[in-house]
Design a protein around this nucleic acid. Structure first.
Lengths: 187, 187
DNA sequence: GTCTATATTCCGATAGAC
DNA sequence: GTCTATCGGAATATAGAC
């Protein structure tokens, strides 16, 4: 069980969300880790494989979060806060943009091999959030008009954009957007 | 008055919004234009100067739009539609992401020289939109809660994210998000 | 598993001819 | 203003020793 492999994956995730897929290199990862270029290639021969594994790991991590929400959360508001926490964590870790926003921006320069994993991640997130919103509205926790799927689309795109705006306007902008979105749904 | 220079600027804008700052090269521009690498460097010796000029041109173009809105638009809803049209145009031109979203995602790999121009563009857009929203609410055209600045932040970040999501989920997702945002404000 | 060493390609950038 | 030619460097990737 190699921990180097896991460290590489974590670093790759960091760099993708901090600098973009085309903004980092194997050299960045190897020097951060204190090993050599070739050692990184031992674990991930191609950069696209590395990125694919990052996406896969994020998808599984999201599935774990969903399962944990299913077991522990009593309200849909708890679940909505889990959704927001994903973005909070990105902001607090070096002002990362979200993985989806980063990959989407570079999408047309990426090997098509990455499309499946990326779209699965997005579809899973959006449909889970749609269910949370729909159930929450039925139970009177949330108040909003329109289809839950539309509202989920707004939340996903708005939070992705909020992390990007935060880099330019400051982190306060992110918190303003987040709290306004929350008020829109809960009031 | 060189039209080659203008063509280069337009191509650079296209590539930044299609492939990201780190996803295109002088070679891409020169071959698209049917000239040589060195000719592009004649107009823009450094890539960062090229990107800066793209941002400056976008800022001026936005100022022209604001002035046109001031002269011609009778309602704030007309102005809001102008705002949305910016993103519509990006979507219809090769599924571009917006200039701000693209540059923000690559921000930490860019020369700091670009920060000023980028933040000016964002501040100008957001403050203009805030005014439109505030005036529209006073006149009864719009209905929303919270500060106009917060609502403007939501609109900017949401539309940026919507162009990114559209690349993954299809253009229909963009239109769903846009029309829901519009309903939220006008109903 | 990690290393040295290197092949290959691409990129930003410049010199100098036309 | 555009060209040819080229430099220096960085990136992805691989071969083969340890």
């Amino acid at each position: 069980m190699s921990s180097t492999r896991e460290k590489i994956l974590d670093l790759a995730e960091h760099y993708i969300q901090h600098d973009g897929y085309n903004g980092f290199s194997y050299h960045d990862i190897s020097t951060s880790l204190g090993i050599r270029n070739a050692a990184v290639h031992y674990y991930f021969p191609k950069k696209e494989k590395l990125a694919r594994e990052v996406l896969k790991k994020a998808r599984i991590q999201f599935e774990v979060m969903v399962e944990s929400a299913r077991e522990n959360d009593k309200t849909q508001l708890d679940r909505l806060h889990r959704f927001f926490r994903i973005y909070d964590n990105n902001l607090s870790r070096d002002n990362r943009v979200c993985l989806i926003g980063s990959m989407a921006t570079d999408l047309y320069t990426l090997p098509e091999e990455l499309n499946d994993e990326l779209s699965t991640l997005v579809v899973n997130m959006k449909s889970w959030l749609s269910e949370v919103l729909e159930t929450g509205r039925k139970k009177g926790e949330f108040h909003f008009t329109g289809a839950p799927g539309h509202r989920a689309g707004i939340l996903c795109s708005c939070m992705a954009g909020a992390l990007q705006l935060a880099r330019i306007l400051g982190n306060e902008e992110y918190y303003r957007i987040k709290s306004q979105l929350l008020k829109d749904i809960t009031q």
